[in-house]
Simulated assay, not measured.
Amino acid sequence: MGLHETPLMFDFELVSSEDLTYMPMSVRFNLDRFGLRISLAQWQLLPHADRVLLARFPVDDDVAIEPNFDHALFEMMRTHANVEPEWFTPEAEPAWRDAGTVPEALARHSALAGLATPSAERWGQLDPFKRYILAKLTRKSEVSHDFLPAMREFGLAE
């Protein structure tokens, strides 16, 4: 699969990420799948055109499909920020990969937001990238401002 024609972003991201000042979830996904970390300040050092390119990479959970994300990121960071991304070991079995079990953090955040927890069946019907997003948005103890809009956009809240 090649690059998307435009940056891959959901409607709930447009307010905070439309101009790519903030990292869209597609970039976060690829950073996590490759085990790479950059700060928001480092992201913002990249020229807009480079941020657009990084946001166009596929979000398929298969490192063999598009191995150039990490290479492109390293080159961009060296060129524009004079640093390299930090490496970390990605979680072997993150909760979002289990299509049969709603993560505890998602259930907790749903309750905090006044929503019913999605059924395991509904959770399993989401594509893996959407499950990743919801897991990412629920990793902290407080409810993210993007949680409810994402739940609505993914058909899990009214």
Rank of each mutant, 00 (worst) to 15 (best):
L148C: 07
A107V: 02
D70M: 08
D32G: 03
V143W: 00
S39A: 09
V143E: 08
G124F: 04
R122F: 10
L134D: 11
Y22C: 09
T101G: 01
L137H: 09
A64Y: 11
W123V: 00
A64H: 02
F129V: 03
F129L: 09
V83I: 09
G114I: 03
E18P: 03
T79S: 07
R37P: 00
F154V: 10
L20T: 08
A150K: 12
G35E: 01
L73G: 05
E84N: 14
P94L: 08
W96H: 13
K136Q: 10
E13L: 07
T79H: 01
F10T: 06
E13T: 11
A81T: 05
M23K: 15
E84I: 08
L36D: 04
L54G: 12
G100M: 05
Y22P: 00
P90R: 03
R78A: 13
Y132K: 07
D60L: 07
L156Q: 04
K130Q: 14
R28K: 14
V143T: 15
V83N: 08
P67W: 02
R56D: 06
F69V: 08
M76V: 03
A95M: 14
V59K: 01
P94G: 11
V102G: 01
L148W: 06
G114M: 01
L134S: 08
M77H: 05
L8D: 09
L20P: 05
M151K: 06
F69L: 05
R78L: 13
D32H: 01
R97D: 06
R51W: 08
A95N: 14
M76R: 11
V59T: 10
T117I: 05
M76G: 05
E18D: 13
Q44G: 02
K136T: 08
Y22M: 12
G35K: 08
P90Y: 00
E121F: 15
I65K: 04
D50P: 06
R56I: 06
L46W: 00
V63Q: 03
V15I: 10
P58I: 00
L115S: 09
L3R: 15
N30I: 10
A95R: 10
A55N: 10
Y132M: 07
L106W: 01
A113C: 08
R37I: 04
T21Q: 06
D62E: 05
N68R: 12
V102L: 00
M76Y: 13
I38Q: 00
H48Q: 11
L8P: 04
P24G: 04
R152D: 04
L36R: 12
D11N: 13
S16P: 01
N82S: 15
L45M: 13
H145P: 07
G155Y: 11
A105C: 11
D127F: 12
L46K: 07
R51M: 08
P94I: 00
D11K: 13
F69T: 03
M9H: 08
A81G: 07
L115E: 02
Y132W: 12
E75W: 13
F74K: 15
H109P: 14
K130C: 11
A120P: 01
T6L: 13
D70K: 14
Y22A: 11
H48L: 13
L20N: 04
P103V: 13
V15E: 14
L115F: 10
R51S: 07
L45F: 01
M25H: 11
A49K: 12
T89Q: 04
L3S: 14
E13N: 07
V143Y: 06
G155E: 10
